[in-house]
Amino acid sequence: MSNKLKLAILIFIALLLLILAIFIPYKSRLSNLDFYISESNNNYQFEVGEKLFFLLNDTTLVNGRDVVWHLGNGDSIVKAGNINYKYPKKGKYLVSIAVNNKFIASKKIGVVSLPKISPRDSLVKIHGVDEGYAGEELVFFTEGKGVNTWYWEFGETGTVDAYEKQVIYRYTKPGDYRVKLQTNTLKYPIYHYIRILPRFEKVEELEKVDSLGVVQNDIKKRLQAIADSKVTDRSTFYKNLNYIKNNYTCNQAEDILVIVNGGRYNDFFSYCQGLHYLENKRRSKIIINKVEIDTIKCFKRLNVTQSLLR
């Protein structure tokens, strides 16, 4: 064998080893490529029209490569890095990232559509039960933009009884009462009418009366179970959703207003769906810190305080 032939063989082997050294490690590293999804308004659900962020776990893995993001609704974005996108319609979508025409990672995402708040919803309104019992703790609260002063008169004392946005009042005598509220945004006061019934002190009936705190903790536990369940675990989702609906809403869950962390308004079903479909659960966890309802029987308002652990 001539020296030239030996040299050619050595050069070929060296080039082959160089190619293997470059591409085999890259292929191995590319298998570690992943992405997660983050939402912009921090209310723990993906919504129609909300800017969502699709973030790679390591952008260096795609440098110099052909990268296409497929959003699952026919749209795609060509970019070798992080992207953001707004979904125009609600639905369930399979988001995928392809590198060099090969699909590397995919995730399912649920996008919900929240009810639009009309100008009527911005008016000051009193929320409270229409009927209660003497001695029972009754919750009253109000909503309205720009309100920072509240003057509550519950019609029993003849004077102002409370000065907060949400109050608990206990009537001492049965009767029909007119609840009066004046705020800094109202020219004239608004009213709410309530009938207070006598409380019958029967032991067997009192044993059945649950405290507000027990009910709130029960709802909190059910919401936490929904938040902890996997996206594919529809059984746990419906079990706890229907439990709350059947036991505490008088089967009128569609009329319930959910206020998240004091500032975000949802309907009950959209809120529960958002808890269940929150993406990136392996990197974050929703903690239901506190739940408040306006009344034990057929509540219409659910105030949730929650946090996101990453």
Rank of each mutant, 00 (worst) to 15 (best):
K92C: 04
V129W: 05
L114C: 03
K180I: 10
L181S: 13
K108N: 15
E156N: 10
G155E: 04
L123H: 10
Q166T: 08
L123I: 10
D130N: 14
V95Q: 09
L71K: 05
K90A: 14
K165H: 05
E137A: 14
T59R: 08
K145P: 09
V179R: 03
V67E: 00
H70N: 12
N63K: 13
K90W: 00
P115T: 11
A105Y: 15
N148A: 08
V78R: 11
R170I: 10
L181T: 03
K86Y: 01
K89I: 02
V167T: 06
H70Y: 12
Y169W: 06
W69F: 00
A98H: 15
I83H: 03
P115W: 11
K107P: 05
K79F: 11
A80D: 07
K165V: 08
N73S: 02
Y169Q: 09
S76Y: 14
Y151H: 01
Y87D: 07
N100H: 09
Y177M: 05
E156Q: 12
K108P: 06
K90V: 02
L181G: 06
E156V: 08
Y171V: 14
K89V: 04
S113M: 06
V124N: 03
V179W: 03
W69L: 00
V179H: 02
R120K: 14
L61G: 07
G155C: 09
V147T: 13
L71V: 03
K116P: 02
G128L: 02
L123R: 12
E153I: 01
G91S: 00
R170D: 02
Y85S: 04
P119D: 11
P119I: 05
H127M: 09
G144C: 06
A98Y: 09
V112S: 11
F154N: 11
A162K: 09
W150I: 02
K90P: 05
Q166P: 02
N100Q: 11
P119T: 06
Y133A: 13
Y177K: 12
E164I: 02
F141Y: 12
I109C: 03
E131S: 13
K165D: 14
V179I: 11
G128P: 01
N82F: 01
Y133H: 07
Y93A: 01
V99G: 01
H127D: 07
E153N: 15
P88A: 08
T172S: 13
A98M: 14
R120S: 12
T142N: 07
T159Q: 13
K180E: 08
K165P: 05
Y169M: 12
